[in-house]
Design a protein around this nucleic acid. Structure first.
Lengths: 333, 333
DNA sequence: TTTATTTATGAAAACGTTTTCTGCGGCACT
DNA sequence: AGTGCCGCAGAAAACGTTTTCATAAATAAA
């Protein structure tokens, strides 16, 4: 039951710990038969090197940290799958932190990573985050890759999707389907992603010569809980014929609102939403979505991180992966 | 830029590292003004004790591991939220491992935890897992709590939900709504949860004096990818008037099948499913579910684990948390 | 045979903490 | 003045690795 360490192996084999360590690491200096004896016992006792000891000695943790706003969101669930897959291949452990959209939590987590706990960080910013100093500071010590919710700093590496273009296309899609008054459900307005999505919307309106009506832009960042009431009231007052939800969570809220106001989708009101919901196709009616390649974004972010960790300085640069507009019944003509 | 360690603090303050360490840990042996000086500099330099050094010295990691089959499943996304919340309160880090339902992966992960990487483990077994030796073995070294997908061993601590009762009730619910031929979509048949759910189904049939028809039990474990075809064919042949899906994933598959076979839900076929899908209410028609208290299960499992880690031996025993049957339109009469 | 070189191993230092064991002044009590 | 105690701080050991440095035996070169 007592923990099996390298000393124990050395004692049982009448070898020094140096020899055992070398044998386990397949050093060329070790006689094959010695090596084999060591490995055999190690396997038998299920010897696992103490990661704290090796970490301390080697000054590397073989850990990476992943900081997420939440996991209820399908985007992040998918992304972490991609991240975990790559990390596992590389023999790294994944530490997970959830900020619950709190900038204070995020700052605390980031600061706590400053001393060797992890070798690198993958982070998607909280919606509250306005100041990026903590990120830039940590990036001086270890590689930090931002994904999806990035910060506007030239010096950081990012993996994103084409928020602006997607949003532009989504708005145009509603216009093509006949919408004249498109309400935009604004979220993440502190973050670049949020700003790009909003700009995609306004630019698309301009492009179609539709005057921008500020009353049709509903800020849903502030009151997450009250989003339902807020949207319902806005829809009732402004009577839009299209709803564009800039985040997944609000997409479903739209359905409840439409139901409640007895608006038929898509006849009276059309709905499109950024969303990674697998079952968007099963909603009543099926929901037209802009779907982000979440798994690939996670994978790519991890991939870039490990390029840096492996010191392969080959072409590590920010990357953008396109989202897809999937047309379904909620925007049918 | 250089890492700030305790030596650096000691040098700058002309103190010994012993004193600095004690000051940071609020030892009573340290003069308050010394303590304050140390803390001030530590804050200024954002000193974070190296967790590998402390871990090695104290022989505890302040880490816990969470082993999940997957994260696409809403149950696990919710559960990890609960786990992370408790762990964070306790100052522990959460290491995440995804088995993708592979027993081999699971065994590898569990074995790799044998040497101090983590102080405890929360695990939900993969659907492939038939042998529990690796779990029992690890449990000799550190506390292991199983949740939801547990193993049938008296000596392990578990957090579960009332699978049998839920399944019984669900079946009865369909019967009450007029179903005569209820097809059961079997999954997780290797695991206790799967067995209990199946037994709940068969017992409920017996209770209602409905003869058990083996052809109505569709084993969906084998061919995850082909589940759709399997179910579609079975429904076409057997013409059930009720579908009971024992896992979330198959619930949505039922909708696609019904659609494809042009069966109207709930008129021609009623559907009920184990599921934590938030938007079950928005499906077409809304889906009647048995919803597990995933967040609470995660929280409770973590809670029990920390009771053990804190050596509070007060009443640490297995716990069962009830699921809820939420009646919606897919089983309307 | 003597000397250089290779091969296989051991001794010991280092990583950054925490904590036990000492030690030094100063104070209170004989 | 001598003894004991207390408050504070330093020296050093320990945790389990990895790796540099040293060394013995065996082989090759002279």
């Amino acid at each position: 039951m007592s923990k099996v360490n390298i000393q124990r192996l050395a004692d049982e084999l009448n070898l020094s710990i140096a020899t055992v360590s070398r044998a386990l690491r397949d050093s060329y200096q070790i006689r094959p038969e010695t090596r084999e004896k060591v490995w055999e016992l190690a396997r038998k006792l299920n010897y696992q090197p103490n990661p704290f000891a090796s970490g301390l000695r080697e000054q590397k943790s073989k850990n990476i940290a992943v900081i997420f706003p939440e996991l209820a969101n399908n985007f992040f669930s998918l992304a972490i799958n991609g991240i975990e897959e790559i990390a596992r291949q590389k023999g790294y452990q994944v530490l997970i932190y959830l900020t619950h959209e709190s900038a204070a939590s995020e700052m605390g987590f980031v600061k706590s990573l400053a001393n060797g706990r992890v070798d690198g960080l993958l982070i998607s910013l909280s919606s509250e985050t306005g100041n990026y100093d903590h990120i830039l500071e940590l990036n001086k010590q270890l590689p930090v890759i931002l994904f999806d919710r990035i910060c506007e700093s030239a010096e950081m590496l990012n993996v994103t999707t084409d928020d602006y273009e997607s949003s532009f296309k989504a708005t145009l899609h509603l216009i093509e389907k006949g919408c004249k008054r498109i309400m935009y459900l604004l979220a993440l307005k502190n973050l670049l992603a949020g700003k790009m999505r909003l700009k995609g919307y306004t630019d698309a309106l301009a492009h179609a010569n539709i005057p921008l009506d500020q009353k049709l832009i509903i800020d849903c960042d502030r009151s997450e809980k009250d989003a339902y009431d807020l949207i319902k009231q806005a829809v009732a007052q402004q009577k839009p014929d299209g709803l564009f939800s800039s985040i997944e969570k609000l997409g479903t809220v739209c359905y409840y609102v439409a139901n409640d106001l007895q608006l038929s989708i898509p006849r009276q009101i059309k709905i499109i939403s950024f969303s990674n919901l697998e079952i968007a196709a099963l909603l009543n009616p099926s929901l037209t979505t802009i779907t982000q390649p979440a798994f690939d974004i996670g994978k790519e972010a991890a991939h870039i991180l490990f390029q840096l960790l492996d010191k392969k300085k080959i072409a590590t640069e920010s990357k953008m992966i396109a989202s897809h507009l999937i047309e379904r019944d909620s925007t049918a003509q």
